[in-house]
Design a protein around this nucleic acid. Sequence first.
RNA 1: GCGGAUGUGAUGGAAUUGGUAGACAUGCUAGACUUAGGAUCUAGUGCCGUGAGGUGUAUGGGUUCGACUCCCUUCAUCCGCACCA
Length: 947
Amino acid sequence: MSAYDHISIEKNWRKTWDKNKVYKVTEDTNKEKCYVLDMFPYPSGAGLHVGHPLGYIASDIYARYKRHKGFNVLHPMGYDSFGLPAEQYAIQTGQHPAKTTEKNVARYREQLDILGFSYDWDREVRTSSPDYYKWTQWIFKEIYNAWFNPISDKAETIDKLKEEFAANGNEKIGPNREQKNIFSAADWSSKSDEEKAFVIDQYRLTYLAETMVNWCPEMGTVLSNDEVKDGLSARGGFVVVQKKMLQWNMAITAYSERLLQGLDGLDWSSALKDIQENWIGKSVGAEVAFAVENNEKKIDVFTTRPDTIFGVSFMVLAPEHKLVKDITTEAQQADINHYIDESRKKSERERQMDKGLPTGVFTGAYALHPFSKKRIPIWIADYVLAGYGTGAVMAVPCGDERDYKFAKHFNIDIPNIFEGVDISESAFSDKEVVIANSDFLDGMKANKAKKLCIHKMQEAGFGEAKINYRLRDAVFSRQRYWGEPFPVYYKDGVAQIIETEHYPLTLPEVEKYLPTEDGKPPLGNATNWSWCTNKNIIKPNTDQNGTCTWPMELNTMPGWAGSSWYFARYCDPKNTEEFASKEKLEYWNNVDVYIGGAEHATGHLLYSRFWTKILFDLGHLPYQEPFKKLVNQGMILGKSNFVYRLVGTNTFVSKDLVKDQKVQALHVDISMVKPTVEQIGEKTHTVYVLDTEAFKNWLPEYSNAEFILDNGRYTCGVEEEKMSKSKFNVQTPDDLVVSYGADTLRMYEMFLGPLEQAKPWDVGGINGVYSFLKKFWRLFHLNENFELSDAQATKEELKTLHKTIKKVSDDIENFSFNTSVPAFMIAVNELGALKCNKREILEPLMVLLSPFAPHICEELWSLAGNEGYVVEQSYPVFIESHVVESTYEYPVSFNGKMRFKLELDLSLDKAAVEKEVLNFEKTKEYLGGNTPKKVIVVPKKIVNIVM
RNA sequence: GCGGAUGUGAUGGAAUUGGUAGACAUGCUAGACUUAGGAUCUAGUGCCGUGAGGUGUAUGGGUUCGACUCCCUUCAUCCGCACCA
């Protein structure tokens, strides 16, 4: 063998590693552990595109590096295999989602294998596998059997809740989420069993509730807040409306504060922490109760500005607010009803679009100002959201822009309570202000007034300090087939949890994957539940056919259920007794480095932290935060090409001829477009030429397409977008691996730019990396024969090696792979120029390079006649003396009084040293006759001179 | 509107603490070898200028002996949140 033949080398080593289970990992208490994890993919039908592997390559490099460094590295991979596309495909074709999923998983695996990842595949998990979702169901049950104790600030079992009720009622722990009433221990003991069960349900961490949910009629399911964007579904972009439905919910709000506090100790980018912080949306203020005139009911409002309470001139309730019907006067009833109907009809999106004039209706009722006792008109308006705070606001038009507009529009009083501020044009929302016209708050700065006001309200008993969060409880039911079934049935309409001995409660077969005719979710079509037909277990209530007569829960769990705990399962993936054993969980502990996209900031990454905290509180996990360090790889964008069809015709106009004509831009498959570099004058640019024949054959509707050509060809438009099947801009890694090899692709993707940055895919530079590997290969070959010399390395060669060791190790620790690739290139160029083929230099270099390009290094390692695998060798140690030859003390005197030494590192070359000296001379010159107070000098550089 | 990020040659991008801006690679130009090259090697390549030299890190200003780097202004692009009281 002579030339670098990546195809056979890579194939051969993949097989050998696989056969010898080189990457299998077991718990070993003698070694320090390191858990390196990728966000597992949803196996879609399109296969992997070049964007997917970016993060996987980075984590693989890190995992391999840590292995070299002597760590016991857990580096697993699996599939988030429940999800919508497989189900949609099932609806269209009748093919069972499990089959589609199986097929897609196989394709993913093939593509992953080709890239030479060092996963321990014995630990693979799939969220849709019954062995796995058995434990997802178990976790659901654990959460169901838990409540959040505000005193201990953690989740506890329902048994503890019962003890608490028996001892103190709910006087200490506070009211439940529905009734808000307080009862004593005596009250509790006098309750019937049904009543008790009902009360307990209101404290559970997962609970059934009729809540306003994001309903997507097109998809026939509800969506959680993070699955909705701009009033449209994140997947598919369908319209989402608000609808009241009975759903399972997860009480994530109980953990708002801990989720917020926990961010502090995490090594995550501040951008991502900000997103989560924003999403949780903590605001500090007060809750104030306003009495209603001629009515016993009180209206609670939340405000962040209690200091402006004397500026209140009206109140606004959300149209859905409970008290609206109680307070509305007869005269206003018709108007109010009309307004409520109108706003109910509007989708979330329409509400957002309506940013014109404020709308609202007066209820006819008045509240009484708690301090001044003035009458305050109560309105309803849909700019107040039912879901935030108490669903009611005290409107302070002089201090809030929305209140101001509302007051102006409806001619409501705008009292000015700010000293020296003009509010004739707009509200003044700055907090740096002195309060006026406010009784006991006059002359105070806002901050001080805030505190005093809360104090006074507390004294008088109508208000108190309060913290509010934007975060909502997460809806946990989906009206879909392809998800985890709930271990729940309904006895006389009351939810009952199925006991763990019957898990997994497997997903039953159905004829059709669509909702039933009477509108039940797809599982309504199921007749055969495993739990009911298993002969050895007690069935709740079945007829002779084994069919449940007590209905099962027909919803399934959302996609984030399975992904919220999979990192724990990897530690012990085959365990049938527990979701993972204590010892293994303790050994592997939490994830040291987690790599994935930032798009999961408010979904997966938040829910995982939430579940981890519950499981920690209940004693099932030894850590509170699942992911210590998080690295967000940027998206790789695809270049999309467009053709322009004249509206209403089948004629396509070349890009530069479109001008003002009415055209429709359509995505065209990038495989039919050839980028061609052209010279125009001095500059070059790329034009995208369409293969018109291929285009005609592409889709039937284009078979008789006509083209208006430009210079005899059709040029397409180009744009950078997210890679997606529907945009026909997907670049798969497959072809590139065939022409250049996995090692080249791995290094090229790293070379492309900073890992965290979004960047367009461009194969232009791949040749540079490929020729680097060829050069590396050539270092070991003389006249086409492998040849390695045992001669002693020169100083220069050692310098090249060790400087590379230093650079590459530092870079890997910082996830700065894009700069370590050039370090290798420089090393190879230098060693090539020195004609160095010495074992002493090249063997460490192989080890160094192997995390990036494992196949070629393994091949050369074996050709060099070494034992074992290069991927198992320990990492070469950086020896400073090979790089730094000596240090040099440069005496300096200022003014003849003080002496300083400039220590210089004579490392790289003379020029660098001379530069430092020169710089220092310049400084000295500048200092002239002055005496500096202090000169801080560190090796290599003057840091500061204080005069 | 609020919060965050980014802005450097034709292109992707280097510049670890303020100290020769443009490493490394792509592209381009010229040359060598070759039957040929989309193989390999050599040289050149920020811009203006024949040259010495001048100029240059989105814009304008500031701090500093010295600024891509620190501070302020403006502009542009991207991301997150958005009637959040």
